[in-house]
Design a protein around this nucleic acid. Structure first.
Lengths: 157, 157
DNA sequence: TTGCTCCTCACGTCACGTGAGGTGGC
DNA sequence: TTGCTCCTCACGTCACGTGAGGTGGC
């Protein structure tokens, strides 16, 4: 006997997936995520496990991918696609996801270093008599050291 | 003698900042980044160092902040704001940036683990006779182990 | 003077937000 | 039957994309 999947109306499913009705209907329109079924009256019914799909969409979106691109990555087998090709395609999608994650993490690490340098330099600025202003080109270069400011200080002065 | 800042027309500045004219004009409209000066004919002229500001805006945007929020974080001293208050505000902005970076990196690390689990399980799936299908509830739960699928496989089946 | 760059509208797009007006379901 | 949830338009918004038509600058 096969377990009957537990179905949820769009409101309950939206709460579970921490999203909202409009977004789910828009995903359906784009072919990203269709409800498992509809009632006679047109009500959408979702599987609980579809929450994972919503999460994956959100994750990929936060990495900067457009929804159309995400659809191409994660949508199911084409007509007549074999089992092996199917598994291969999924593996490719997951590896692509992992690659994007690694790239993004490296970029964030670099950013974090830049912010750190700016915070360090800012401490030095506290003991300096100069104030960034148009007349000293906003302390660029630094009047104490003669060197360029950390990028994130230059951005804020 | 104070170094004259090197000024660039919007096209050259856009290339340097790896962005485009429309984005720079939109940033100006929102009060995020104004050109250092304008010519008689209305041409915008930017400082080379403003590239750092563009980069910071992009970085914060990629963390999910709206441009209006970014403006509030990074815009200069209010009228009559003292030097100490000015430096404090910058420090607050940088620390907030760092906090967002740390949160995001933790989230990405968690994602990367989920993708890794899905890739591992997918290898097991290759040696399994079952194929995910509506009739077996898309292999949920797994017919071999009786356990739930990794979230990112559940998302893709 | 020529050609390239820049200017200001202004309409289009993506991923939703937010009602309006009407119907389904325990 | 009542009230809550859902339905389908459809217009609004944010952060730009993409021309149209016209002018500035080495």
């Amino acid at each position: 006997m096969i377990a009957r999947p537990h179905l949820l109306k769009i409101g309950d499913f939206a709460r579970l997936a921490e999203t909202n009705l409009r977004t789910l209907r828009y995903y359906e329109e784009l072919g990203l995520l269709a409800p498992a079924t509809r009632s006679e009256g047109g009500f959408r019914y979702y599987r609980e496990t579809d929450v994972h799909r919503v999460n994956m969409i959100r994750d990929l979106q936060a990495l900067g991918l457009a929804l159309e691109r995400i659809r191409d990555l994660i949508t199911g087998p084409g007509p007549g696609e074999g089992r092996a090709a199917y598994l291969d395609r999924i593996q490719t999608a997951l590896r692509e996801h992992d690659r994007l994650l690694r790239e993004r993490m490296a970029a964030l690490e670099a950013q974090r270093e830049r912010v750190g340098h700016a915070l360090q330099k800012l401490e030095q600025c506290r003991g300096c008599p100069h104030t960034p202003h148009a007349e000293n080109n906003f302390c660029e270069p630094c009047l104490q050291t003669g060197r360029e400011l950390p990028e994130h200080l230059s951005a804020l002065f």
